[in-house]
């Protein structure tokens, strides 16, 4: 029991931190521009593929730096020459624009690397068990991902709360007009944030690719979850994104081990088989079976009960 508890917590936290790495960029962009960047998950995928390509020729460490950098610069350019022009036509146009970008990346990846995925593996130097947990070897690489994600959280947090640029970004989140009046280049701030967000998505791709399967379907698998994290956490809130990521990661992980169904509840409650036909199939559905859709349930509840999310300052 204790073993399950510890391992599940560790797994949930690591998955949550990987989600956070993606959600942090997304939530800043969302908070600032009021628009979901639908291409965010696609950038994560592109990061994984670039990571694979670069680590094949130059090694994993250069990939860890170069791939996010390339995506960051690409993201900034995309904002400067694409999104900024579309911005004046309103949110719907921006949304459609990012939707189009997601499609372009998806198709480009399939054209360049093929449709069946690439063999992106954990680099041999990082592929060893770090410690044994209740007789179970725990891989170093996962802990490495955890450490990197924690470092990024503190780095981002410090940058936003302790630097002058961070000050302007936070101000531009809520009062872009006023910040502009004070003589700051708000569009440039937007460009920086968009670039940083794309870079973070790329970084998540580079380190997530070897854990997950690097294939054209990886964007779709994570994309929907990301949006729930951002909304649950609250738009534009970094601590909110962190908490929501961990919450989603832990809830999913723990739900999987719970083989409890309504049927069991009835039995314990002494209702037994008296109401056997009541609720039909749903009675026998265990929590484990619905684990993967729990985040969406949380999203719905959050939207009804507290539309601004955990730490958000304004409604969705």
């Amino acid at each position: 029991m204790l073993e399950q508890l510890v391992i599940s917590t560790l797994n949930g936290v690591i998955y949550g931190m990987l989600l956070f790495m993606l959600a942090s960029g997304l939530t800043l962009i969302f908070g600032m521009m009021g628009v979901l960047n639908l291409a965010h998950a696609a950038m994560y995928m592109l990061g994984a593929y670039l990571g694979y390509q670069i680590s094949k020729t130059l090694g994993f460490l250069p990939a860890l730096v170069l791939a996010p950098l390339a995506l960051g610069v690409g993201g900034a350019l995309l904002e400067r020459y694409g999104l900024r022009r579309v911005h004046q036509h309103g949110h719907v146009s921006e949304l459609l624009f990012t939707f189009g970008v997601a499609f372009m990346i998806q198709e480009a990846v399939q054209m360049i690397w093929g449709r069946i995925g690439v063999p992106y593996r954990i680099p041999a130097a990082l592929d060893f068990p770090l410690f044994r947990l209740f007789d179970t070897p725990y891989p170093f690489y996962r802990v490495f991902v955890l450490a990197l994600a924690v470092a990024i959280f503190f780095g981002l947090f410090a940058a936003l709360s302790r630097t002058r640029t961070g000050l302007i970004i936070r101000a531009a989140l809520t009062h872009p007009g006023m910040v502009g009046m004070l003589g700051h280049d708000v569009p440039r701030v937007f460009m920086l944030v968009f670039g940083a967000g794309a870079g973070l998505a790329g970084l998540a791709g580079v380190i997530g690719g070897p854990i997950f399967v690097t294939s054209p379907s990886m964007a779709g698998a994570l994309g929907a979850i990301l949006f729930t994290v951002v909304v649950i956490g609250g738009l534009g809130s970094l601590p909110g994104a962190l908490l929501a990521s961990l919450l989603v990661g832990l809830v999913q992980t723990f739900a999987v081990v719970m083989d409890v169904s309504l049927d069991d509840v009835f039995r314990v409650a002494g209702l037994g088989t008296a109401s056997a036909s009541f609720l039909g199939d749903i009675r026998h559905t265990t929590i484990a079976q619905i684990a993967p859709i729990l985040p969406y349930l949380m999203l719905l509840v959050m939207l009804v009960v507290r539309p601004r999310g955990l730490f958000g300052s304004r409604d969705v």
Binding site: Q4, I7, S8, N11, G12, I14, Y15, F212, A221, L222, I225, G249, Q252, T253, F254, V256, V257, A288, A291, P292
Partner: peptide, 9 residues
Amino acid sequence: ADFTPYIAK
């Protein structure tokens, strides 16, 4: 998206 909990199970 993440199969680690299933592996633990």
